[in-house]
Design a protein around this nucleic acid. Sequence first.
DNA 1: CCCGGTAATAAGTATATACTTAATCATTCC
DNA 2: GGAATGATTAAGTATATACTTATTACCGGG
Lengths: 234, 234
Amino acid sequence: MTKPLYKAVKTTLLERIRSGDLAFGDPLPNDADLAEEFGCARLTVHRAMRELADEGYVERRRRAGTRVATRASRGVQLSIARVDEEIFARHAVYRYERLLREKAAPPAAVATAFAFNAGQKALHIRCRHWADDRVFQLEDRWINIDAVPEAAEKAFLHYGPNHWLLEHVPFSEVRHDISAVCANAADAAVLEVAAGHALLRLRRMTMSTSGCITVAELKHPGELFSLCSDPHPA
Amino acid sequence: MTKPLYKAVKTTLLERIRSGDLAFGDPLPNDADLAEEFGCARLTVHRAMRELADEGYVERRRRAGTRVATRASRGVQLSIARVDEEIFARHAVYRYERLLREKAAPPAAVATAFAFNAGQKALHIRCRHWADDRVFQLEDRWINIDAVPEAAEKAFLHYGPNHWLLEHVPFSEVRHDISAVCANAADAAVLEVAAGHALLRLRRMTMSTSGCITVAELKHPGELFSLCSDPHPA
DNA sequence: CCCGGTAATAAGTATATACTTAATCATTCC
DNA sequence: GGAATGATTAAGTATATACTTATTACCGGG
């Protein structure tokens, strides 16, 4: 159960950075010297340093050495979990409810994403995700049944399309777009809030090598939503 | 300029996953066999596999081998860049404008985060970030001048506190909280939108080893905001 | 004085080797 | 039959060694 050596090296270096002992832009000793200091092989230090660099704490350049990254360069990472997991994490009871399932011609924006011809149909699902007795998320999804023909048979009555898609369809890239909108009358009714209430809207587009697979619009009542952090797995 | 071997291994494995050739949950050959297949050392394969595991594409367990991760387990990562960089990335002109600077007792929520006594004062900054001729972000920030005494002297007239803090204060953790709210009269005026307009609100709390350093509330007009992705740096 | 070649340097990659640790499978014994 | 035990396997870690490559610093010639 002893901690790996490279991790120990990593955390002591990280502590020197976090404590301000090493300020932004300061150079660190080179790999070889650190290896001597810690009494280990250069590769061991190298691995610690590489991970620190991957995580954005330091910047490395050949010949120039390693220096503490100016914080500007590191973007804060936040992760979006799956809906039901997110709700579970809040110690709330998750419930899924399908509102609509149809095969229809998608709106222009979606049709374009799918590279559809006029009138070509896709699978359209609308559903609600509940956390305890409140609506947590309203999902409006279009699935490209040309790209994923198996989806056409699914009812998505007892579990969400997200769930199934994640486990059955390989994908390569996801694009997100976050914005805030006011609830129109229809949304307000379904989400059980007043019209005009601020909603957090997440648009998600999932691609595979063969093109766009699915497009989803997820709306949350403004109040409740994700708190995230920038953890360092020490 | 030739691609490192371990990266080549990594991408060909990734292609097998993405193409659906290897489905979710499928086992991959063990390190030794793959090493033979690719005609390289086990460590080289090991590194490729470790990175794939770090990035969430596969799951590894001792003795049990490596299998393709069920997508459920990987959270989508999105990164929040610095305001001015974000604006720059949009090819817009960035402008900073300070609206207020005072030393005052912070509201209860902030005072609690700072572990302040009643009446203890903090530095309060309100400012706007412009993208071309539109207000991109309204920032309302409290800085714990007990934790960061140097900040007390700064005017933050020509550049934002974010900028300075990032470069001068070591920190260990950032907590975020995203929500949507309707613009009240004051916000609407400053952001140059109609009252009731949906705003994207980001609350950010920055901690160091010695406690909470700063708390910021960042508001965006609903329309414009970050598009993010889940890239794989092949 | 600047320009460009070159040497020195530090990070990066690759390999062989050896040992550790966790997990699973199969066997044995009660 | 079922639990304890031990063997086996595959990932994980650590080290020495060697070679590659990008970049800087220096130095000499035009």
